[in-house]
Nucleic acid binder design. Structure first.
Lengths: 350, 350
DNA sequence: TGTTAGCACTCATTGCCTTCAAGTGCTAAC
DNA sequence: GTTAGCACTTGAAGGCAATGAGTGCTAACA
């Protein structure tokens, strides 16, 4: 069966209405508020047909219709009005990032907060993959107790730190030497390249050998996102949505968002090509609760990955608003990063 | 009215029963399970009297009695059986900390997890105040873009979240010099002392003056506990307790625990003299929900403050178990830290 | 004077019934 | 293809009686 234009229009009305009201939509409501030129009986026929096509479901015969996950997908792709943000919202975004300095950890947190505030959903964020970041500096700082702290700084000020065991025989000066040796070896390389240095080849490093092996071990731990790079904002926002008056749903939701692993799983496996990604219900990700959707966007600017950001909330989500927020935050972020680069380049030219 | 021994015994039974069952306790239940030598009528008289004294309340005439906050306080101080942990629990604790390396941030998280797992409540932890920690090393690492990262290593932690603006005119070597100058100036001092160095007195530092001023500014940010030092574990555990089948309670609870500020407030204002601290209901802390209790302990070992740890949960909390867990975790932690010190001293002697 | 049996009373819970309203599906007419 | 009309379904809400747990009070007892 082909989808007539009227069917599409009706489906759009149902989804819009349901997103707004959280109440199953009846034929009467449709003809009264939107399609005033046909009768409710006509709409009823169309609704029955849309139900057959799998776009709508009914809880019980006398209860109006509710969109299925399939309907939401279709809605997002074809039917949704792509809204723009109010200028107040836009101002809020630019202001929030206006004087952001510091490293990515802080940036991630601010972005998550802004997204949660504007959308009224719980937001999730996973920092950029450090894999391809080039190492700017690598330092070993002795800190007593036979240990040294390995600090790695990369281009976007991602820093990683690990403790390295230092042999008793190494003096602080030795550690300093090892440190500059490390820097010579690894600076300018990407983390992923650095990691691949063969441990065996390090035999020649004499007394530093053990230290070097540990450094490589540490580098391996950077393959996965760190706990600190997975953040959550506005968890309490779910209570603003009626589906979470049910304790069971809250339970499911909380069990997911209180595990960083699960968040990483849900947000993580992005296809970098697609800017906005929508997952609806549990069918698309085993870690997701049945009644949840996740909308994420992966940001980048100046060729640099800035991380993946998004919201998690009920399937009945205001996709239009959420997508608008994600897009605009992305834009501002990009301008910010590029603007800074530009500024810097201009300075360099003087 | 004086509390007879029998009254105390009955009150103890009521609180124990209620903590176990979450069901209001009736006179019949008491005489059947515990006080078999008196009749329920006698117990009824006592219950009425305990109610008059403010220890018990009734929701309705035919509903059994429930302890009041006052009863819990009395129970904790005088009535509670101070239980010991099972050997399985004790093993679990020792194992959890057996190979903990790394800085305080990691320690805080493990401790919070252990406490939450053993008590089945949500646990909260606020790391030790960095104020009195002695600075072991202080380093400025250049990271391009006119910035350097200030890394401070103290006895038990690494502080590395302040970027310092570096004047264009400073080369990396200059930054290195500034770095060693900082170290000379501040190493061995406590953070709180270091912070008090007069900015004005730094005029003599020439081109480093601005940098020095910024470093002092940065030091000031460590006066309050940092967000990273306030952690939460097992948020989803509240659903294991029947009071949180009510969505309103969950809402209150979540609104508190999703704000680090509020957690710090509730956990924070400890009297260091008292090892275990119990707050029951909202009367003791305006930030706390009416129906919540918080039990915390401030740990220290070898003269060093290790932070404040505890659980937050319903007023009807298994105080005996919670306190036992907190005490034992404290002991193991102390042994761990002292053990290490001892080990180290022995090594130093060789 | 403290304890207890007995009994009337209170009140939440449960199940059952009715009524009500919302919404549908179907049919026949347009 | 559209629509009016109507029977049918179903959840929500309200009333009502039965149930049962638990209490408070009184009078008798040791």
């Amino acid at each position: 069966m082909k989808m007539s234009d009227r069917k599409k229009r009706i489906l759009q009305i149902v989804v819009d209405e349901y997103i707004n009201s959280a109440v199953p939509v009846s034929s009467k409501a449709i003809t009264e508020k939107h399609l005033t030129d046909v009768s409710s009986a006509t709409v009823r026929n169309e609704l029955a047909s849309l139900e057959e096509l799998g776009y709508l479901t009914q809880f019980h015969t006398s209860g109006g219709r509710v969109p299925s996950p399939q309907a939401y997908r279709f809605y997002i792709e074809e039917l949704m009005q792509r809204g723009n943000l109010s200028s107040a919202d836009l101002d809020y975004i630019s202001e929030a990032f206006s004087n952001k300095t510091g490293d990515v950890e802080h940036l991630i947190r601010s972005v998550a907060n802004v997204i949660s505030d504007l959308t009224d959903y719980t937001s999730v964020a996973v920092g950029p993959n450090a894999e391809e970041e080039r190492i700017r500096s690598m330092t070993l700082l002795p800190c007593g107790d036979g240990r040294a702290l390995l600090v790695i700084i990369t281009g976007s000020r991602i820093l990683r730190d690990n403790f390295i065991e230092i042999p008793e025989t190494m003096s602080d000066a030795d550690v300093g030497n090892a440190s500059s040796m490390l820097c010579k070896l690894f600076c300018g390389k990407a983390l992923s390249e650095a990691r691949e240095v063969e441990t065996a080849a390090l035999g020649e490093f004499g007394q530093y050998r053990q230290v070097m092996a540990e450094v490589i071990e540490a580098l391996k731990s950077y393959a996965r996102p760190r706990e600190e790079d997975i953040v959550l904002a506005g968890a309490e926002k779910i209570f603003n949505h009626p589906e979470y008056e049910d304790i069971g749903n809250v339970k499911n939701f909380l069990s997911v968002i209180s595990s960083k692993d699960k968040i990483a799983e849900i947000v993580g496996d992005e296809d970098d090509e697609i800017q906005i990604n929508v997952k609806i219900g549990s069918s698309e990700d085993k870690d997701m609760p049945d009644d949840c959707s996740v909308v994420t966007a992966t940001y980048s600017a100046g060729g640099k990955n800035l991380g993946t950001y998004g919201v998690i909330g009920p399937i009945r989500m205001d996709y239009s608003k959420v997508i608008a927020v994600l897009e605009n935050v992305g834009k501002v972020l990009e301008e910010l990063v590029n603007g800074k680069n530009k500024e810097k380049k201009e300075k360099d030219h003087e």
